[in-house]
Design a protein around this nucleic acid. Structure first.
Lengths: 334, 334
DNA sequence: TCGTGTTGTCGAACCGATTCGACGATGGGC
DNA sequence: GCCCATCGTCGAATCGGTTCGACAACACGA
């Protein structure tokens, strides 16, 4: 591999001159610049990332921490992956991906050794052990998902309470008096996925405020348990006229289940849900829903992280930002 | 951040001694080793990755090139992601993920700058532009997916022709005389995804050999086109008694479609398919199928890559390895 | 008692970039 | 015609590790 020294020799200048030509931090005469460019082209030179990282202590890499939980509906994660890598690239950063079960250890390892300039944590839980590691790290980080203690952290998440209220209000305005919520599976609550109870609590509160009868039930993430749980829930709440589904795996199979029971939407049952645009499109979901945009969330997080790195001086307070989602009426209620 | 110099100072030795204590490449007295260990602990020292990479020209990072094609059923990709990152980690490597549309450029960029020690290409097409870049790269690479020209490349893929023959034979032995194949979507062929025609050609050949009537039809990847295409295919081939589905998106919705048409499996129609164990489990697919193991494929590829890096001397010939998949009888045929 | 070999440690060079200070060569203002 | 600023370039130091050769201290056998 050609080094900057080879380029310098070929162009008949010193190494520092090549470096300045590359970075543009000092003026270079047109003639010299041309000779350097030619040398770079003919030698096929690319600066060595390790050397540059050593000297500048900038790697231009972000660490991305994912967790694939057993028993989880995986496609959800993918919707973050692509927008994050893409927006990172457009800002000049590459993505180092970590999927280890012990996310805190992975974070510490990568941060301490200086492999990354910043960290992105996905699917953050209420009491996420990775946060201790993040706070101890030299590099800044951003979270997607709301933890219990947000002190000093940059957090991006959907506004789940707002989404819940929007959906409950929608059903209330149509005159529904008994509604039923299918929540994420029990293990999501156990793991501390706060989005689950933030949504459920807000829904309950709003329903109570409206004097509606309200019940919440755990969904499942894997077949055939999904079918069974949906049928059981429908059996147990025969008088509910409105159904709110807050679970990708359940909503994906709901059309088939309702069809097999001969339940017509919206004539027999009004159904609303909460999912991403992409997910809705993939599975062609026919329900009125609050549509989230994981891509937007991911992009915002990356942009914030980049800004945080590039202006370390500005100690603007850490930010917890909730993205409001928008109701898309697909006529599955009445 | 503490450097090796800080450790040396704290332990009262030279930097080289600390380095040797760390690597074990020279003997160190018990006493010195203990002082060094203590210093490392109390200073919380971790070697700087950039400096190490610069000196050793080893980054302990693999580049992973994915492509998310528009109109593709994404979950398939995930099944490779996790096993690859996990086996890489267990061998000491991290994963740098690239999803750019221009994969060749991404590969060149990362390889030239020395950010990675090896490259993993997923979903390689017959005439994949990334291969030129890979051949020009200094680092070794492995492919998942069979290209047209495998010269000098390490390739791992499922044995699709074998899988096709297994399924056709299975139906033939049961006495079926007219069968129908649902293939991956047309755009997979257009993109040069060779697995699609390798499977289709072998199925056709084997059916012809058995004197069976055979027709192949493109599946779709997104709803509601999937439903429509399945219904159209079933309408067009009323006499087919056996159905082979080689398309994840189609097979996932097939149970619902058959149910809505009142078609009973296996009484009215025998169905066989080809998918991964994980996929079958997630969607609780009830069909007899050849089950692939993307995890195994990914693991083999990573192990091969690692060996290739660690013994660059051994010029064992490049290898194209097809993994035979196994028929799992779930009673969806008769 | 004198080589000889082993063990443990050190100093210095090096990997490939960036960046600071220095400095000669210009050019403009007076 | 002189002084000073600006422009363009260079040499040297530096980032934080690894590794080679040198060497002191010690044990051992002859």
């Amino acid at each position: 591999m050609a080094t900057i020294g080879d380029v310098a020799k070929a162009a008949g200048v010193s190494r520092s001159t090549v470096s300045y030509a590359l970075s543009g931090k000092r003026t270079i005469s047109l003639d010299t610049r041309r000779r350097i460019d030619d040398a770079i082209k003919s030698l096929n030179f690319t600066p060595n990332a390790g050397a540059r990282a050593l000297k500048t202590s900038q790697t231009m890499v972000f660490g991305l921490l994912l967790q694939f939980h057993e028993d989880e509906f995986a496609p959800a994660m993918l919707q973050y992956l692509l927008p994050i890598t893409e927006s990172a690239r457009s800002l000049g950063y590459d993505i180092l991906m970590m999927t280890e079960a012990d996310g805190a250890a992975a974070l510490t390892r990568v941060a301490q050794s200086g492999m990354v300039d910043g960290l992105i944590l996905l699917d953050v839980a209420h009491d996420d052990p990775r946060l201790t590691a993040l706070r101890a790290a030299r590099q800044p980080g951003v979270l997607v998902g709301l933890p219990g203690d947000t002190d000093g952290l940059e957090v991006f998440d959907l506004d789940f309470p707002d989404a819940a209220r929007t959906l409950v209000d929608h059903l209330h305005e149509l005159g529904h008096e008994e509604i039923c919520l299918i929540t994420p599976p029990r293990h999501v609550y156990e793991r501390g996925g706060s989005y689950a109870w933030r949504f459920r609590d807000a829904a309950l509160e709003q329903a109570t405020k409206h004097g509606m009868k309200f019940s919440a039930h755990y969904g499942e993430s894997r077949q055939p348990a999904i079918d069974e749980s949906l049928n059981r829930i429908l059996d147990e709440t025969p008088n509910a006229t409105g159904l709110i589904v807050h679970n990708d795996a359940s909503v994906a199979v709901l059309p088939a289940v309702l069809h097999s029971r001969g339940v017509k939407v919206p004539d027999d049952l009004s159904v609303v849900s909460l999912y991403s645009k992409d997910f809705a499109r993939s599975f062609s979901l026919p329900y009125t829903a609050v549509e989230s945009s994981p891509d937007k969330l991911g992009r915002l997080a990356v942009e914030r992280l980049t800004r945080r790195i590039q202006n370390p001086g500005t100690t603007d307070p850490s930010e917890v930002r909730f993205i409001a989602a928008e109701l898309v009426d697909r006529g599955s209620t009445r």
